[in-house]
Write a protein that binds this DNA or RNA. Structure first.
Lengths: 174, 174
DNA sequence: AGAATGTGTCTTGATATCAAGGTAAATCGG
DNA sequence: CCGATTTACCTTGATATCAAGACACATTCT
């Protein structure tokens, strides 16, 4: 374990150590770094989305529809639960994507309460190009981390995600 | 390396594998898991903040002032650059915290353009209690991950953060 | 069938955020 | 020491988000 270059989180932990020496800072370091990595990565991702005239949420929506495969069609409920937003947010998002001509709404023959949201061919072409640039960008963003570290990090994040997704929430939500 | 329980990101990657088999999905898996862990953790953190009548950004602001140590006083510019928000956002945040009686603004004798934002004793007492509950909560959130994994994950995130913070952005922003 | 309950979506109103631009104070270069 | 530039902050206007609740349709139970 080589000595690390101090990062912004190290500085924060050092301050807490001065002010409240009794705090257990291990979890704060991990969670702080995770959050900060996420924020910095999101900024870098947005730069590529902008090149396609897309915002982050627009990319997410189109990509979710695209990767569902032909006929590129999902119900609003599927979309908002997948994307972790509320139904009201989904209403606005769909209105925006429809106005831009990237999705269309069809009546759902099986359930008159809901509609089906389908990618148009314009939307499909756009996201098809954007996804390739996006993946290249992701690769560049983490390229400074050795391949072995990337694999190990992915493995550990998968374990953490399993804990967060499956984990006995009842005992932890307090 | 034990076989993992499939998580939400595995399902997403499997869909891409069907639709666009040529994509290199390694980076997408890592970045997807990182983002999703971050979102799930943030939700859990908010539950504890609510118990103190705080939102996430309110906690962040008070904690930043508190950990700076006596006299618990920082300039707005320091706050917004530390917290990665714009100056306009900071204006609104400070107005809110002032209205709640948790911070006060003083004139800066050294620079009449800026003010100094100081934690009140009410603000200090509140964040002093909240920080302890927060750290306990963070510990619980990741408790399902073995201690060795926690340490290894922190180490790898620190390396990634160093890449993201220091890393030769010029060659990657494209 | 009809009532009660559940589900899917949209509306409304309140927040939080940013980008862009404005203003005043500080600082720098001759 | 004075004009030009930079810095610090605030204002404005536009978006994105959520929580709560309204409403129509679906399902289930009698």
């Amino acid at each position: 374990m080589p000595p690390r270059i101090p990062d912004a989180v190290d500085a924060i932990l050092a301050q807490w150590r001065m002010e409240k020496p009794d705090l257990d800072l291990g979890p704060m370091g991990l969670i702080g770094r995770l959050g900060r990595c996420g924020a910095l990565i999101r900024r870098r991702l947005d730069l590529t989305f902008e090149r396609f005239g897309l915002s982050g949420w627009e990319f997410d929506m189109l990509a979710t529809l695209y990767r569902s495969g032909p006929p590129y069609c999902l119900a609003p409920t599927t979309l908002f639960s997948t994307l972790m937003v509320t139904s009201g947010t989904m209403t606005h998002r769909l209105k925006g994507l429809e106005a831009r001509g990237w999705v269309e709404r069809h009546v759902n023959p099986d359930d008159a309460r809901s509609s089906l949201v389908q990618l148009t061919s314009e939307g499909r072409q756009l996201i098809d190009a954007a996804i390739e640039a996006h993946v290249d960008n992701e690769k560049k963003i983490i390229a400074g981390l050795p391949a072995a570290d990337q694999a190990a990090l992915d493995q550990l994040l998968a374990r953490l995600l399993a804990v967060l997704e499956n984990g006995r929430e009842s005992e932890k939500l307090d």
